[in-house]
Computed example of a mutant assay.
Amino acid sequence: MTEERLEKIEQEGAVSDVVSGGMGGIQHFKITGFPTPEHAKVKQLLVSRQQRLKMKEVELLELTNKAEEYIESIEKSELRIMFRLYYIEGLAWAQVAHRMNSLFPKRAKAYNEKNCQKRNERFFQENL
């Protein structure tokens, strides 16, 4: 929304208005100018938003790195893979189960949404 507002101000450029005054209000004056205060305010809001987003991005990258380090510290490779799919790649548990079944085809569809969730719950109950 802020970007759109700034773009509109810049595209419109100068704005004009006609005001009445002088000689008892019968004279009309055309006033033209660039809305500098509004432009500056909108631009500052946009810069501020971009800075906040960059800070949040850095924060999220740090948290992702911590999550990856924690996952790498898990002994069982099966759980590491499962947690990476869910917590890092952002797959739903049903998608995790499907991917695990493709990675381990000899286990005859050993993974489903519910048992993946249950393995996750058990791991954190035992390790927290």
Rank of each mutant, 00 (worst) to 15 (best):
I26D: 04
K66L: 12
S48L: 08
E57M: 10
K118T: 09
S20C: 07
S77L: 11
S16I: 04
M1A: 10
K118H: 10
T36F: 06
A67D: 05
E89W: 05
Q50R: 15
Q50M: 10
K106M: 08
Q11K: 15
M55K: 15
K76I: 06
S16E: 15
R52A: 12
I26E: 08
E126N: 13
R84C: 06
K30Q: 13
F104W: 11
S73Y: 05
G33K: 03
L61S: 13
K54W: 00
P35C: 06
E72V: 01
C116N: 09
E72D: 14
Y87E: 07
A40M: 13
F29C: 05
K8Y: 06
L79E: 07
E121P: 00
H39C: 01
A92D: 08
E7D: 03
M82N: 01
E113F: 01
P35E: 02
G22W: 05
S102H: 12
Q95D: 15
S20F: 07
C116A: 03
Q11R: 15
K43D: 00
L46E: 02
Q51T: 10
K106Y: 08
M100F: 04
V47K: 14
R49G: 02
F124T: 07
E62N: 13
E10N: 14
G33P: 01
F34N: 08
M100I: 04
S16D: 10
G22H: 05
A97N: 09
F123R: 06
H39R: 15
I31R: 13
I74H: 10
E4I: 04
L45T: 07
I81C: 04
S20A: 12
K8F: 06
Y111T: 06
H28A: 12
E121L: 09
N101S: 07
R52M: 11
E38R: 14
V18G: 00
A94F: 00
A67E: 08
L63V: 05
P105I: 09
G24N: 10
L63A: 09
T2E: 11
E72M: 09
E113M: 12
